[in-house]
Design a protein around this nucleic acid. Structure first.
Lengths: 174, 174
DNA sequence: CCAGCAAACTTGTAGCTACAACCATTCCGG
DNA sequence: CCGGAATGGTTGTAGCTACAAGTTTGCTGG
C-alpha cells in the first residue's frame, strides 16, 4: 500500500472516503424513493425531464444522451422501455435519416408532473437542505473541477452551461 | 414542474446538476481504469482494501458490509466471486456460529498491491489533484452533511470516524 | 425450557448497464 | 461518382445489484 506512488494524506483520504460513501449510497436512495412513488429510476426521470424542457418536447437520441450523461446503447435500451410504457415515442428525424428523435408523450408529461414534487423533495432532503448556501456553491465548483478532469475536452459543456443562462430556444447544436 | 413544492433556485440547480453528473460519470470511469489494470471493480478493490487493514486481514461479513457501504446480499455475492478467484476465503466465526468471517488470502494481498498504485493515481487525477486543498476539506464537510441526511442514526459512523483517529485494534462492535 | 423473535447470513431471480458487434446513412477525397 | 471512413443508432449478451425469500443460530420472557 505504501508504494512509490504518492499516497493520500489523512485529509485527502477523509474527503475521498466521504465521496465514495456518497457515490455508493445516494443514487440508490434516490432511485428507491422515485421507484416507490412513480415507478421510475432517477435516470428515467432525468430523461423525461430533459425532453420536457426541449423545444417540441423532442430531442435526438444523441442530444438526449449528452444531457443525461449516458452512452448511446444505454439510452437506446431505456427509451425502448419507456416507449413500451407509452411515456415516450420515437420517430425518424426528417433532416437526417440515420438519426432518431425521441418525444415526450402526454402520458409521459403527466407522469413527470406526478413524480416531480416527491423527487425534488428528496433532492432537497438529502442534498440541498443538508448544506449551507455556501456549501451549495462550493459543491457546484467542486463538481465543475471534477467534471473538467473527467472530460477535459468539455464535450458535455452543453449540459454544464445549460443552466447558467436563460433558456434559449436556438441553442440546437450541429 | 412548478408545483406547490419548493423548487430549486438557479444556484441550487447548478449544484445539483453537477453532482448528478459526477454521480453518473465518476464511478464508471474509476471502474474502467481498475478493471483494465487489475480486473477488479472499485467495490471489489474497496472490499480487499478494508480486509487488508483489519487485524488478521479478517472481518465478519457484517463488518465488511458496513465498511464498504454495501447490503449484505450484495457483499455475499461479491465475496463468493472473490473466493472463486482465490483472493478471499470464508470460514465460520468461532465466537458466533451464525456469523461468517472473510479473510484476505496472500493472493488477494498481492492483487491489492498490484492494483493500488494505478487506482490511487486515478483518484488523484479525477478528484484530489483536480481540487484545491481548501476544496478537499470542503468536500469532506459536504460529504459529512449529506451522509448525515442519508443516515441520521449514524449507523455507518464506524466508517466515517475510522479515518479520523489512529487505528485502534479494539474497536470491534457488538 | 421452550416459543417466538431477531441476527447473520445465503440463494434465486428480475432488471439495468457496459461492451461489442452490427446495420444504415452521410460525408469526403480523388 | 464511387470507395472508404465517420456518424447515429440498435441489438445481443455477460455481469452486477436490488429485492424477496429461506436457513441457521442466538437471545429473551414466561
Amino acid at each position: 500500500m505504501t508504494a512509490n506512488t504518492p499516497w493520500l494524506d489523512r485529509r485527502q483520504l477523509r474527503a475521498w472516503i466521504r465521496l465514495r460513501a456518497v457515490l455508493e449510497l445516494l443514487p440508490g436512495t434516490l432511485d428507491t424513493q422515485l421507484r416507490n412513488d412513480a415507478h421510475l429510476t432517477e435516470f428515467e426521470y432525468t430523461a423525461l425531464a430533459m425532453l420536457s424542457e426541449a423545444p417540441g418536447r423532442t430531442l435526438r437520441m444523441t442530444g438526449l444522451a449528452q444531457r443525461t450523461n449516458a452512452t448511446l446503447p444505454r439510452l437506446s435500451h431505456v427509451v425502448s422501455r419507456l416507449e413500451k410504457r407509452g411515456l415516450v415515442e420515437r420517430f425518424p428525424c426528417p433532416e437526417n435519416r440515420r438519426a432518431t428523435n425521441a418525444r415526450l408523450t402526454e402520458e409521459g408529461w403527466a407522469k413527470l408532473l406526478q413524480a416531480a414534487p416527491g423527487h425534488v423533495a428528496a433532492v432537497r432532503r438529502y442534498v440541498i437542505d443538508a448544506l449551507t448556501d455556501e456549501q451549495v456553491d462550493q459543491l457546484a465548483a467542486i463538481g465543475d473541477a471534477v467534471l473538467a478532469a473527467l472530460d477535459p475536452s468539455g464535450q458535455g459543456a452543453v449540459l454544464y452551461t445549460h443552466y447558467d443562462e436563460e433558456p434559449d430556444p436556438e441553442q440546437d447544436s450541429a
